[in-house]
Lab assay of single mutants.
Amino acid sequence: GLTEEQKQEIREAFDLFDTDGSGTIDAKELKVAMRALGFEPKKEEIKKMISEIDKDGSGTIDFEEFLTMMTA
Protein backbone atom coordinates (compact mmCIF):
# COMPACT_ATOMS: atom_id res chain seq x y z
CA GLY A 1 0.00 0.00 0.00
CA LEU A 2 0.85 3.67 -0.04
CA THR A 3 2.19 5.71 2.82
CA GLU A 4 0.19 8.75 3.86
CA GLU A 5 3.01 10.89 2.48
CA GLN A 6 2.78 9.27 -0.95
CA LYS A 7 -0.99 9.67 -0.93
CA GLN A 8 -0.57 13.34 -0.04
CA GLU A 9 1.85 13.87 -2.95
CA ILE A 10 -0.56 12.23 -5.37
CA ARG A 11 -3.40 14.34 -3.93
CA GLU A 12 -1.36 17.50 -4.57
CA ALA A 13 -0.71 16.45 -8.16
CA PHE A 14 -4.42 15.72 -8.59
CA ASP A 15 -5.37 19.13 -7.20
CA LEU A 16 -2.89 20.80 -9.56
CA PHE A 17 -4.47 19.07 -12.55
CA ASP A 18 -8.00 19.75 -11.32
CA THR A 19 -7.77 23.42 -12.25
CA ASP A 20 -11.46 24.21 -11.75
CA GLY A 21 -11.59 22.53 -8.34
CA SER A 22 -14.44 20.24 -9.36
CA GLY A 23 -12.92 17.18 -7.73
CA THR A 24 -12.50 15.47 -11.07
CA ILE A 25 -10.07 15.81 -13.96
CA ASP A 26 -11.67 16.16 -17.37
CA ALA A 27 -10.13 15.78 -20.83
CA LYS A 28 -9.16 19.46 -21.03
CA GLU A 29 -7.46 19.40 -17.64
CA LEU A 30 -5.66 16.15 -18.47
CA LYS A 31 -4.35 17.70 -21.68
CA VAL A 32 -3.00 20.72 -19.79
CA ALA A 33 -1.42 18.40 -17.24
CA MET A 34 0.23 16.27 -19.94
CA ARG A 35 1.59 19.39 -21.64
CA ALA A 36 3.00 20.57 -18.32
CA LEU A 37 4.84 17.25 -18.11
CA GLY A 38 6.29 17.80 -21.58
CA PHE A 39 3.91 15.65 -23.64
CA GLU A 40 1.93 16.71 -26.70
CA PRO A 41 -1.05 14.37 -26.53
CA LYS A 42 -3.54 14.11 -29.37
CA LYS A 43 -7.26 14.29 -28.63
CA GLU A 44 -7.62 10.54 -29.34
CA GLU A 45 -4.79 9.74 -26.92
CA ILE A 46 -6.44 11.78 -24.18
CA LYS A 47 -9.76 10.02 -24.79
CA LYS A 48 -8.04 6.63 -24.69
CA MET A 49 -6.24 7.50 -21.45
CA ILE A 50 -9.46 8.63 -19.82
CA SER A 51 -11.40 5.58 -20.96
CA GLU A 52 -8.66 3.33 -19.56
CA ILE A 53 -8.63 5.10 -16.19
CA ASP A 54 -12.29 6.07 -15.92
CA LYS A 55 -13.75 2.93 -14.35
CA ASP A 56 -17.21 4.35 -13.70
CA GLY A 57 -17.68 5.69 -17.23
CA SER A 58 -18.23 9.27 -16.09
CA GLY A 59 -15.88 10.72 -18.72
CA THR A 60 -13.79 12.30 -15.98
CA ILE A 61 -11.15 11.00 -13.60
CA ASP A 62 -11.86 11.20 -9.89
CA PHE A 63 -9.22 10.95 -7.18
CA GLU A 64 -9.65 7.20 -6.64
CA GLU A 65 -9.17 6.57 -10.35
CA PHE A 66 -6.19 8.93 -10.43
CA LEU A 67 -4.67 7.13 -7.46
CA THR A 68 -5.06 3.80 -9.25
CA MET A 69 -3.43 5.24 -12.37
CA MET A 70 -0.48 6.66 -10.43
CA THR A 71 0.15 3.43 -8.56
CA ALA A 72 -0.48 0.95 -11.39
Rank of each mutant, 00 (worst) to 15 (best):
A27D: 04
M49A: 04
D20H: 04
K7T: 08
F17M: 09
G59A: 06
E64H: 08
M69V: 06
P41E: 04
A13Y: 09
D26P: 10
D62F: 05
M69P: 00
K43A: 14
R11T: 01
K31M: 15
E9R: 15
T60I: 05
A33M: 15
K47A: 14
K28S: 11
G1H: 13
K28N: 13
L37P: 02
Q6I: 07
D54W: 08
E65L: 12
E12V: 12
A36M: 14
M49Y: 06
R35I: 09
E9Y: 14
G57I: 07
K43P: 15
L37T: 02
V32N: 15
D15Q: 13
T68E: 08
D15W: 11
K47Q: 14
D62N: 14
F66T: 00
A36Q: 09
M70G: 00
E5N: 08
R35T: 06
Q6M: 09
I53K: 04
K48S: 07
K55I: 09
M70E: 00
D15I: 11
A33G: 04
K31F: 15
E4C: 13
L37N: 02
D15K: 13
F14E: 00
K28Y: 10
E40I: 12
T60K: 11
S22Y: 03
R11N: 01
T68F: 12
F39R: 06
T3N: 06
L67N: 01
M69Q: 02
P41H: 13
F66L: 03
G21S: 05
M70T: 01
T3L: 04
D54G: 11
D20S: 05
A33P: 01
G23W: 03
E12P: 01
T3C: 09
E5F: 12
I50H: 02
E29I: 11
V32W: 15
I53C: 10
D56G: 06
G21Q: 06
M70D: 00
L16W: 10
P41W: 14
F63W: 08
T24D: 08
T68V: 09
I50L: 15
P41Q: 05
Q8G: 05
P41L: 15
S51N: 09
K48Y: 04
E4K: 10
K48A: 11
A27R: 08
F66H: 00
F63N: 00
G21V: 02
V32P: 08
L16M: 11
F39W: 14
K42R: 10
R11W: 06
E5L: 09
R35D: 04
G59C: 07
E44G: 13
D18N: 04
G59E: 05
I25M: 05
S51Y: 06
E64I: 09
Q8H: 10
R11D: 01
E5M: 11
G23L: 02
G21E: 04
E9D: 08
E29A: 13
I61R: 00
G21T: 03
T24S: 09
E12T: 14
L37G: 02
A13P: 00
E65M: 14
E4P: 13
K43G: 14
K55L: 09
M69D: 00
T24I: 05
M34Q: 01
K7R: 11
V32R: 15
A72N: 10
M34R: 00
K43H: 11
T24G: 05
E64G: 07
D62W: 04
E9S: 13
S58A: 05
E64C: 10
T24K: 07
K28M: 10
P41K: 11
F17H: 04
T19W: 10
K47S: 12
K55T: 08
D26C: 11
T24C: 09
L16H: 05
F66W: 06
I50Y: 05
Q6K: 12
T68Y: 12
L2N: 03
L16D: 02
E44T: 07
K7N: 04
T19F: 12
I46W: 11
E52Q: 12
T71E: 07
A13H: 05
T71Q: 10
F17L: 10
S22I: 02
I50N: 02
T3W: 04
E5P: 05
A33K: 03
F14Y: 01
K48G: 05
A72T: 08
K55M: 08
F14I: 00
T71S: 10
S58H: 06
Q8I: 08
K47Y: 10
E65H: 07
S51H: 08
E64L: 10
I46M: 06
L2W: 11
G57T: 05
E44F: 06
S22G: 03
E12N: 13
E65V: 10
K31S: 13
T19G: 04
K47N: 10
E9A: 12
G57H: 10
F17P: 01
D62P: 03
K31A: 14
E29P: 00
G23Q: 03
G21H: 13
F14D: 01
P41R: 07
K55E: 05
L30G: 00
E64F: 10
D18F: 06
M70C: 12
D54A: 09
R35Q: 11
I10S: 02
G57Y: 07
V32F: 15
G38R: 02
L30D: 00
K48L: 07
A13W: 15
I53S: 06
R35E: 09
F39Q: 03
